[in-house]
Nucleic acid binder design. Structure first.
Length: 591
DNA sequence: AGCCTATGCAGCC
DNA sequence: TGGCTGCCCTAGGC
């Protein structure tokens, strides 16, 4: 289909009476040009007509206002001012868009963060508050016997006092432009602590040893389009399964890159979008020896991991024709399966009785559900990410499942060009309350619009930390916390980053330059460098020198990991040494 | 520097 | 239900 691009057919002009020019000009950034009128003057209907009467719209929806009354005076100079209109609502008087590194919302639209009308992101109650927009449960879920059993049997295993969170907040190594298309999923190796797997939109799978930073490999022939999910084979951690939008599940040997296809839903090739099946959600149920995988038509498939073949018929688990984007097997109770999809539902299933309409619970959301996961240790909580900009938490699958225990407003808008955001549990947190998720909306950070990665205490809704790096200007929708170490892996555009806690990381200045690998890409390609092998030192120095100005030391408060909006003088000071941040000061400065 | 493009979902008719 | 259109913070290539 031909691209639909709006074009500017006419300049944005307002022709104003020269005598009115002083009083009619408005904002500072309004551009004005003087023009001598030379052409013939069309007869004007009425002098007293308001300007709006002559207003018209150009191809871009921008308003052109022409004051014809000035033309009566013949060859007198008139003023043409290019009056700007809001690019969102096309109305004058305000302008949406970036002012420096701060995005100004269109006041005519609902808040971009919480989606409620009446205010903008700047004044959204969910924006700055540390409590970050928690909507508490309407009632405690303690009125049934199952919950009572849960409280008595499982609760004691959960530590009453939460340990202090350790936040990996400093980039320690990276591969820049590693993939040829955007990163779509990440997976840590189950036993080798330093191996990170990454899938991309093109169907390729990367294997990166982030300790030996330069040891990396991208397997190019595994899939032909988006790798949506990857899982390690439970009986052989040298093998991975991957589900792709090409409609196949692959099983790949990480050593050799040799790949076999377990299942293909499009044996007859491309017959048009109405028949092309894509695989999204996937997980492994090692107890039952099956890979569970689901497609974009609402169907679930089971693949036997021993015979590597499909077992049984496809089962409709979400609205027919809707995409099932996520599947998760309960880590404790292998009979439980959690699915989520574009029909605005997450559903819990009993693996022993999988048939259409037999879900145990249907968890309603207001928009598409990007992901839903059982908590990693007890498997008794559920965390979901929905495109209505809310995280939802069900505190106990044994309790009342009619409504989520909590909703947390968080900016993770859907954008067709981004991998959908998914909030993920910290697998190491014994209290099962820390989650990580990238943020869509940017923050003005020292004059740069950066998109942090948020750490949220989902038991309270508190924003525990937001981590960012001045060199990462792209959104980081894909994030994974290490199963054993205090490490965060993030995928942002085509690049991968490994974050470690600041106190455990070496100071930036002393950081080994070889920790950042610059891969291919036309923009940065230089003479004499091979595409994909551009380990250019000067690029790395660029990263380091830019980073040097932005060193911050954590204060006592765990939320003080946020960087402050530095003033030039402070920056100068900061470049000499580390700086302690006061949270309250930072918040007040930010506004 | 600025245009173009890939592309998913929602709302409308 | 299906086709069409718009889309508010993309990112990279040309």
């Amino acid at each position: 289909m031909a691209p639909r691009t709006r074009r500017t057919a006419f300049p944005k002009v307002v022709i104003e009476r020269d005598t009115d020019s002083e009083q009619s000009s408005s904002s500072d950034d309004e551009e004005e040009v003087e023009k001598e009128e030379e052409e013939e003057c069309p007869p004007s209907e009425s002098e007293s007509e308001p300007e709006e009467e002559d207003a018209t719209k150009n191809g871009n929806g921008e308003k052109i206002e022409v004051d014809l009354s000035s033309k009566k005076k013949g060859k007198t100079p008139i003023t043409i001012s290019l009056k700007k209109v809001c690019k969102v609502c096309k109305k004058p008087g305000h302008e949406a868009g970036f002012k420096g590194a701060t995005y100004i919302d269109c006041p005519m639209k609902p808040c971009f963060l919480c989606k409620m009308p009446g205010h903008t992101t700047m004044t959204c109650p969910h924006r700055v508050a540390i409590e970050h927009g928690v909507i508490p449960a309407s009632r405690p879920n303690t009125h049934n016997s199952v919950e009572f059993v849960f409280q008595r049997q499982l609760r004691p295993t959960i530590p009453p006092i939460k340990p202090a969170y350790v936040i990996p907040d400093q980039v320690c190594c990276a591969v820049i432009r590693y993939h040829s298309r955007r990163v779509t999923c990440l997976e840590f190796h189950p036993t080798k602590n330093n191996i990170l797997l990454s899938g991309d939109k093109k169907g390729q799978v990367g294997v990166w040893d982030f300790d030996k930073v330069h040891e990396r490999m991208v397997y190019q022939n595994i899939h032909t389009c988006i790798v949506n999910n990857m899982r390690f084979k439970s009986t052989n951690d040298g093998m991975i399964y991957a589900a792709s939008s090409d409609g196949t599940i692959s099983c790949t040997d990480l050593e050799t890159g040799l790949s076999s296809s377990l299942m293909s839903l499009n044996p007859n090739g491309w017959q048009g979008p109405s028949t092309w099946r894509m695989l999204y959600g996937m997980d492994i149920n090692s107890e039952k020896g099956v890979v569970v995988v689901a497609d974009n038509f609402g169907f679930l498939y089971l693949v036997d991991t021993r015979s590597n073949s499909k077992t049984g018929e496809a089962i409709l688990i979400h609205k027919k024709g809707s995409k099932v984007v996520g599947l998760h097997c309960n880590p404790v109770q292998p009979d439980l399966l959690l699915s989520c999809g574009n029909d605005h539902f997450a559903r819990i299933w009993d693996m022993r009785r999988l048939e259409a309409g037999s879900s145990l619970f249907d968890l309603a959301h207001k928009r598409v559900v990007n992901s839903a996961y059982f908590s990693p240790l007890s498997g008794s909580k559920i965390l979901s990410t929905s495109q209505d900009n809310r995280l939802r938490i069900w505190d106990s699958i044994f309790g009342n499942m009619d409504a989520p225990s909590r909703e947390i407003v968080h900016s993770h808008d859907f954008n067709r060009h981004l991998t959908p955001f998914r909030a993920e549990w910290d697998p190491k947190d014994p209290s099962e309350s820390l989650a990580v998720i990238g943020r869509y909306i940017s923050e003005n950070y020292n004059g740069a619009a950066l998109h942090p990665i948020d750490f949220i205490d989902v038991s309270t809704g508190q924003l525990v930390a937001e981590v960012m790096d001045p060199n990462i200007t792209t959104i980081s929708p894909v994030n994974k916390l290490h199963p054993r170490d205090d490490i965060l892996a993030s995928g942002s555009s085509r690049s991968l980053f490994i974050w470690r806690p600041k106190e455990k990381s070496e100071p930036v200045e002393q950081k080994d330059e070889s920790k950042i690998v610059i891969c291919g890409g036309a923009k940065k390609k230089r003479k004499g460098k091979f595409d994909g092998e551009n380990d250019d030192d000067s690029d790395q120095e660029g990263w380091l020198s830019k980073t040097k100005n932005l060193k911050f030391k954590n204060s006592e408060s765990k939320s003080a990991r946020r960087p402050r909006k530095a003033k030039p003088a402070q920056l100068k000071e900061a470049s000499k040494g580390t700086q302690t941040i006061d949270v309250a000061e930072w918040i007040s400065e930010r506004d």
